[in-house]
Design a protein around this nucleic acid. Structure first.
Lengths: 163, 163
DNA sequence: GATGGTTATATAACGTGTTATATATTTGCT
DNA sequence: AGCAAATATATAACACGTTATATAACCATC
């Protein structure tokens, strides 16, 4: 068995480490989404959630809300448009801005997700790291160990905790 | 100003959040590397560090050591080969395995990085989150706030803390 | 009211992760 | 020995982030 360098190097590799844990969590989340059978990518949720919370937003506002760059927001918005979850129309007062709003289909997806996917994901993540405390490196180690033991999909509220 | 949905949604978006913080940290680290003038990508360091610590490793062992999949390790190894930092040769006992070792140039890079880049990065990250404690969501919020105030490059040990 | 700078979005090119699959070598069984 | 299964690496195709730049619309000033 080979040493996990990223873990060993601690603060030095914290960027790589956060990133790989984030990727793992998103992949696990995707698995839950697929199990429930929704045709959406985990990374697209924050966009829909932002509009659901704040009402129609422009592409730039979406980028800010989700914390990525504008070209990334443009692309994901295009995908959501393609999938029929959102609608886009120029802002009446400023033709440069494109207002992105939820379609009925998008609103339904969100409403259903709120009762099916989101609670399950949030509970699974909380099960994984909700009770943690202490220095961040220790918590990250605990999270990685936890994920190795049981992925998010096995930490859903439906399944009784056996530990 | 638009609400940061990923932060607001907490555990539900923890994957996205860890990922984006990791990307930010890596970008900041890259800036420090570039300032010092080394021709390497932040994400390539863990590969060289792994070999430096453990001696020559196969592609598969590198993937394990760095915590990514094998095709990713194959690609990065190819880049490091191209850059002249590593050498590859078939393992004597098993022609399928390719042993990756540091070249003199690679070893020099590592040795120099150990005194120039690594301490600075580790100190900057420690400055950012070394003293944190408590629930992970709170720590992540503190890290994001901290990065917004001052990127890693401004948290080097050379610069006196002004706060 | 034309012109130059700013702002919003789109597009292109790239980096680096993933999954799926092809290829070559080794291993193990009859 | 010979052949099937397993293993190690490479390659292809894709996801999704980035930076740099093009284009269109708005605004301010002369």
């Amino acid at each position: 068995m080979v040493e996990d360098v990223v873990r060993t190097l601690g603060f030095l590799c914290m960027g790589s480490r956060l990133r790989r844990i984030g990727e793992r969590l998103q992949a696990d989340t995707q698995q839950i989404i697929d199990e429930i059978g929704l045709g959406i990518q985990a990374g697209q949720y924050p966009f829909l959630a932002a509009i659901d919370r704040a009402g129609p937003l422009t592409v730039g506002e979406l980028a800010q809300a989700v914390g990525i760059t504008q070209p990334g927001a443009t692309r994901t918005t295009g995908q959501l448009l393609e999938l029929g979850f959102v609608d886009m129309q120029p802002a009446p007062d400023d033709q440069r801005r494109r207002l992105v709003s939820l379609t009925d289909k998008g609103q339904e997806l969100i409403d259903y997700s709120k009762i099916s996917v989101w609670p399950r994901v949030a509970a699974a993540v909380a099960d994984l790291c909700g009770d943690l405390d202490g220095p961040i490196l220790e918590q990250l180690a605990a999270i990685e160990d936890g994920l190795a033991e049981a992925p998010l999909a096995q930490r859903s509220p439906a399944k009784e905790k056996t530990r």
